[in-house]
Amino acid sequence: MSRLSARFARLRAENRAALVTYVMACDPDRATSQAILDNLPAAGADIIELGMPFTDPMADGPAIQLAAQRSLAAGGSLKVTLEMAAAFRAKDADTPLVLMGYYNPVYAWGPEAFCRAAAAAGIDGLILVDLPPEEVGELLPHARASGIDFIFLTTPTSDESRLPTVVGQASGFVYYVSVTGITGARSASRDAIAEAVARLRRHTTLPLCVGFGIKTPEQVAEVAQLADGAVVGSAIVQAIAAHAGTPQAVAAPLDLVRTLAAGVRGTRK
């Protein structure tokens, strides 16, 4: 059983949703980023999305754009991202690690060689924002061969006719982007999320994680009642930015994750 399947099975047994936390690799620098990453599970993260820095993050709002710039300025790269993942995996055998970013760095590495290297670094899943079902054919077989789940994104614009195309090839979990827009901007209403989750449930039995615009423990709790996971990214990244270079650089973002974790742990599905 993959780490993602095992984790969702355990959470089902606990009758609660997952807190999925996003941090950008090497933000604000490699040592701080590694320390934050290594301590995310203890702070309450059930699944970790590790951002791969890219110069042109077209689907991201200012918070993650700036995180990518800090990462690249501090020597961040796809290679460094995998090295950080491997260091994490040496200490934590169970917490699923999902890479998230854009296709060009992966394409530059070579999809087949990259999937092998990512699997060797202990990566469980891969989210590539600009590799839709229409183009994923050149990567998907290599991800599968390496035991990596390719996580498909569904959105408010994925209608009934399109959903089979999107979730038909999915494994691991299905990510629901709850608003049309960029990361860290507006938030969807509870009703809109409930409606979307119901629609998605008709098309897939995979776990559903909801992201974009989720910033507070209250929002996490709300999503935790409806879906199998709540993804928080920009809020954590902003905490990292706000405390970079201070004695709280590692502790402050982890404190935030602890408060967010209360949102899933206090909520029965």
């Binding site: 077209m58 296709y103 600009d130 839709p132 408010p156 614009t157 209608d159 999107v166 982007v177 827009g181």
Partner: peptide, 20 residues
Amino acid sequence: ERGHFGIYGGRFVAETLMPL
């Protein structure tokens, strides 16, 4: 029909934009 000129071109966009 998929918008490719040899290996070039295509539709490498976020899912939100795909239906549009």
